[in-house]
Amino acid sequence: MIYWDHNAAAPVRAEVAELLAHAFTQGGHGNASSVHQAGREARMRLDQARARVARVLGCEPKEVTFTASGSEADALALIGAWHARPRPERRRVVTSTVEHPALLGAVAQLEAAGAEVARVSPGPDGRVRVEDVLSALTPDTALCSLMWANNETGVVQPAREVAWACRERGVLFHTDAVQAAGKVPLSLREVDADLLSLSAHKFGGPAGVGVLMVRKDVDVRALTPGHQEGGRRGGTQNVPYAEALALALELATREQEATAARVGALRDTFEREVLAAVPDVGVNGAGAPRVPNTSNLRFEGVEGEALLMALDLEGICVSTGAACASGTLTPSHVLRAMGLTAPQARASLRFSLGPSTSATDVERVVEALRRHVPTVRALAG
């Protein structure tokens, strides 16, 4: 099988799988909130994992909050920060129309609670213009959220510039960095955010654990009450998964530059060969800076789901959009925001390469597309 859907989830790294196997079979199982020996040992392991994540991000350990996912981290960032805002008269939230569904869902909840929401659309290349975001930052803005990299197109957003502008205006800035981790240099030196979300399964860790970085001078109201995680997230912590996230993040960060160069070259070769082999194909996000592993291709006159199934029968895993929305007939909100028609959006597939992708894989997928696209087009016509 060729797994070309690494934006949905990257395979768990061997080192991480080994760590988890040891933790669940031979490791301690104490509650990190307990005062007995097993609890103290669990607390020490949790503190070490937190410190390791903080070193990568360039923040303090107490600013790292472990969550169950990137989606939860997004919700905690927006809903928690909005309800805890020190100036209640600031009721405006600024975001983009190409955010992850989890982020957009949190924004919708805030809107229902009385927030005034401004949603900024991107240009045809999928990138939001800094000037458009700045125009939306009115004096009553409490919070701005702009993703670091888009999960469907791979387009890198101007999060750094927007973060600076927000800091100058006293506006809290959050970035969903889930798709950036392991693909671009990731730290608060790169984007000076107040709140930053991560998810382990995007960079070789297990699904079911994420991180929200919260600056020490920023308050968030817990969605789940409890004393754990500095009062930001109640519930017994999953110590093995926190350790697994820390290890995966360290490894992905250490190898990021070399992996990006290799995978980026494969991605460029893949796009070049597909465009040469198959007529009427476009690259969604072409011309904008993109993370190196993502290619979103538009096959004019094709029903994307049909092409996806044809590839799946050959053991080639791709996606029609965000994994959270797969299985729906609604065209991608990201591609629609970029100006694509509904048929064009439904004719698009996301190919996401990973550390294990080879040149042979590229050749096989290009050949499969060369054979299947004409057939699927004929059926649709």
Rank of each mutant, 00 (worst) to 15 (best):
Ala200Met: 05
Val130Asn: 01
Gly234His: 07
Glu72Lys: 06
Asp47Arg: 15
Glu116Arg: 14
Asp361Leu: 03
Trp4Tyr: 06
Val211Ala: 07
Gly234Tyr: 08
Gly114Phe: 07
Asp312Ala: 14
Val274His: 12
Leu76Asp: 01
Val98Gly: 11
Leu57Lys: 14
Ser69Cys: 03
Leu186Glu: 15
Val93His: 06
Met1Lys: 07
Gln37Lys: 08
Gly230Thr: 08
Ser135Gln: 14
Ala323His: 07
Ala276Thr: 04
Leu313Arg: 15
Thr330Ser: 13
Ala347Lys: 10
Ser135Thr: 13
Asp361Cys: 01
Arg52Ile: 08
Ala306Ser: 02
Val281Gln: 07
Arg371Asp: 15
Leu46Glu: 03
Ala200Lys: 04
Gly354Leu: 04
His333Val: 11
Asn293Gln: 15
Gly205Tyr: 10
Glu99Cys: 14
Asp125Ala: 02
Ala8His: 12
Val53Trp: 12
Ala345Phe: 08
Tyr241Phe: 10
Thr259Asp: 01
Pro240Phe: 05
Cys324Leu: 09
Leu186Ala: 12
Asp268Ile: 09
Thr375Phe: 04
Ser71Gln: 10
Gly234Arg: 04
Val366Thr: 12
Lys202Asp: 03
Ser332His: 14
Ser71Trp: 14
Thr320Asp: 05
Asn150Glu: 12
Glu131Ile: 07
Gln237Gly: 09
Pro355Trp: 02
Ala42Arg: 06
Ala288Val: 05
Asp192Glu: 11
Val93Gln: 03
Ala252Lys: 14
Pro185Glu: 03
Leu198Cys: 07
Glu303Lys: 09
His100Ile: 08
Asn238Pro: 14
Leu104Lys: 13
Leu198Gln: 03
Asn296Thr: 14
Glu63Ser: 03
Ala14Lys: 15
Phe24Gly: 08
Val94Cys: 06
Leu223Asn: 01
Met213Glu: 09
Pro343Gln: 02
Ala368Ser: 13
Val117Met: 12
Ala42Thr: 05
Arg13Gly: 06
Val376Gly: 04
Ala347Asn: 06
His83Val: 06
His372Arg: 09
Ala14Pro: 03
Pro374Phe: 09
Ala8Arg: 14
Val130Glu: 04
Asp192Asn: 12
Ala49Leu: 10
Leu104Tyr: 00
Ser71Pro: 01
Leu369Met: 12
Ala342Phe: 07
Ser96Ile: 09
Leu20Cys: 11
Pro355His: 06
